[in-house]
Design a protein around this nucleic acid. Sequence first.
DNA 1: GCTCCTATTTGACAAATGTCAAATAATGGA
DNA 2: TCCATTATTTGACATTTGTCAAATAGGAGC
Lengths: 202, 202
Amino acid sequence: MNKNHRIPYHYLNHLEQSLNVFQPHPPAVTKFFGDHVHLVRLTRDQLLLEAGQVCGHYYFICKGAVRGFIKEGRKDITTWISVENEMVTSISSLDLSRPAFENMQAIEDTDLLAMSNKDLNLLYDTFPSFNITGRLLLQQYYRDAEGRAYISRLRNAETKYRYFLSHYNHLSNRIQLKYIASFLGITLETLSRVRRKLSVQK
Amino acid sequence: MNKNHRIPYHYLNHLEQSLNVFQPHPPAVTKFFGDHVHLVRLTRDQLLLEAGQVCGHYYFICKGAVRGFIKEGRKDITTWISVENEMVTSISSLDLSRPAFENMQAIEDTDLLAMSNKDLNLLYDTFPSFNITGRLLLQQYYRDAEGRAYISRLRNAETKYRYFLSHYNHLSNRIQLKYIASFLGITLETLSRVRRKLSVQK
DNA sequence: GCTCCTATTTGACAAATGTCAAATAATGGA
DNA sequence: TCCATTATTTGACATTTGTCAAATAGGAGC
């Protein structure tokens, strides 16, 4: 994991825009980000966080794709897949400073902006109105998590994949099938068979 | 759904205590709750929210038990089960005022304190520091949702039930097996067989 | 275009879970 | 206590998905 690169201006810009969706922020907040954020570069397959470690950071994906996954026996269960302009972290480990339950891994060469939880709390203290943004961001985070959980609760493999196609279409021709299968909670083989079935029907 | 009852004092008290876990609140906030909250009484099996409706409220369970569930074909999938001193709502429908995806149903005779989303926003505006509480509450909400999603991602019925026993033990001798099975994403019959297997082993 | 490596598909079969029907157990009134 | 109703368990069998092994397809580098 390489840190301490110069941060491309448009990366900060994209982060700012993503946050402004919730409410406008004063320039001082933007400056705060510029001062407290650092760039993390990952090559494909590299781990951003390993289960058992404490995840002390929030990450904003500037470029690339990252997945969260947990180990069940010797298998992976992918819990989420995120791409550029999305935020990722391990919520459960963040505020309790507990060891993370899940792993985070780049599945493409990826650039991230990172802010430590400590700095984030400083941000909340310095700019109380940022708590609103934090709250709204978490609310969105929650809704997204619900959508993912919905897939995992579906019983039928074809239904899962159809849902995936309609809600995550931007990933369907970008992410390897093994990750998609794992995200859907089915095997690669089952996914392959579902795909054939659907392509025949069309 | 009966409203407009006099609110027992200890109900408000329990709500206050639940919120004070996150940070202390000034008496004015407590008063705000007293003025803007109303009591909802449900008998067992009554629906608190039906999918398709807009869920305009946050609820605090004073007494009883409530579940969230979605329809998959003609079957139910229970997504959560909550009991007294827990908050429930349909996050996804709340802030977007979208129709709710899921249903909420009392599975025991239940008393709830309800606050409208409108009043909650007034609370946030009037007492900005309450945004911190809101943020922390959502964070906890999120962690809980992750834990539930974890169960649904496990592939093995016995593993699911063991996890349930260790993490939701307070529900295991209280909630009907049909709801537990539905919460675990397995059939009642499979749950029954898992239970027999575990009881024989002991 | 060829080669190597990886991704994806396919087939045969095993294992887990679901389905449907019925039996038994538990529970809450009269 | 007995009855009626509901909850839970059990059995036989169907269905879906997983497993393992192998074949094919696709891509990157030469």
